[in-house]
Nucleic acid binder design. Structure first.
Lengths: 187, 187
DNA sequence: TGGTTTCGAAACCTGAGGTATCGAAACCTA
DNA sequence: TAGGTTTCGATACCTCAGGTTTCGAAACCA
């Protein structure tokens, strides 16, 4: 039988550091860039020891993925026509990636995943899959179509971020909407 | 006065190692992934000392960019309608990125550039600009439109590569053509 | 044969991810 | 208040990759 729900393990309780670490992660990545935002610097910015971070996250990559999950939050899929759903998803993704640190962190962990298959699985299953499933559900499209949609939208946003160091400007986000929505929208 | 054209500097002449190093770079990246394809391993695969590589390329990033320039070669822009030009460019980019090692190397150096502004400038000016200018010329479109086109196409191809580890399959390349060409094609 | 330059081999430095150790601190229970 | 248990921070440490330095050997020319 399991211990009662309110049973609390003995010993010093864990400090709740997730929020402050996430905030420190984004601000450090924003200030220094992904590679120079070392775990040691993030820990210092959070007022926490490096060991405390590694007790909660097994690697820098997983820390970043968790931080991005926290930053993105649940998909705000509006009810409405297919065109409205798609437009909302694109603008939401663009806005989130444009937030300070988020785009850099995303592009950085994405890069790391190129040569780290384990991280690639985590990135795909923890970060991409929830939004992909929500979109499949909202649109009634098969998996491969939604994956293609994500490739185009997120790929374009990250490519702009990676090439210029700046998030995509609003006019180009609008162009992205006008490019994608007629293709995927109401038939 | 300049030295005569055939004047050859004294001392031991440089060995012509570019081709063998480029080949070793792609095969090593293909086998081990970008991060584990260290300069030392690439040098060993090329049968050359690490110092010899660093005498020719100032950093791993610049080696990769040169290697990609060699792999991509000049843009094979066919004469024809705007739709034909765009379709050719998309299929050419997809095929090149699908070649063994090329996509991994591209995604890897792209990732490094996220936190390395100097490398970002090199990537943008040496690798992206020539093709961008050729496209501007062929299409008569302004710079920002062509940059947006590149963001969408290359971004989608690299996002697929980064997320799955495999290049985009032909059916999705076709979908990319059908998505992009009506938007940018003949008006 | 001597001058000049590049070659390869090796040692070395720096910085980052990640681990191990250990005393101090925080909680619970008796 | 004392003892048990766990987490905390500080610190030292390991590994590995990018990049530099050193130096004797090799390749060229005059």
């Amino acid at each position: 039988m399991a211990s009662s729900p309110s049973a609390r393990p003995p010993g010093r309780p864990r400090a709740g550091v997730h929020d402050v670490v996430f905030a420190a992660t984004l601000s450090t990545v924003h200030e220094l860039g992904y590679a120079r935002a070392t775990v040691e610097r993030i820990a210092a910015a959070a007022g926490v020891a490096k060991t405390t971070i590694y007790r909660r996250w097994p690697s820098k990559g997983e820390l970043i993925v968790d931080c991005l999950l926290d930053a993105f939050g649940p998909a705000p899929l509006v009810a409405g026509s297919r065109a409205e759903i798609l437009t909302g998803a694109i603008r939401w993704a663009a806005a989130k990636i444009g937030e300070p640190g988020v785009g850099d962190a995303f592009a950085g962990v994405f890069s790391d995943a190129v040569s780290d298959p384990a991280l690639r699985v985590i990135l795909s299953s923890r970060l991409q899959d929830p939004y992909r499933l929500a979109l499949q559900d909202a649109l009634g499209e098969p998996e491969n179509r939604v994956l293609f949609f994500v490739d185009v939208v997120v790929g374009a946003l990250l490519h702009r971020m990676g090439m210029t160091g700046e998030p995509m400007v609003d006019a180009d986000v609008t162009a992205l909407v006008e490019l994608v929505v007629p293709h995927f929208g109401d038939r």
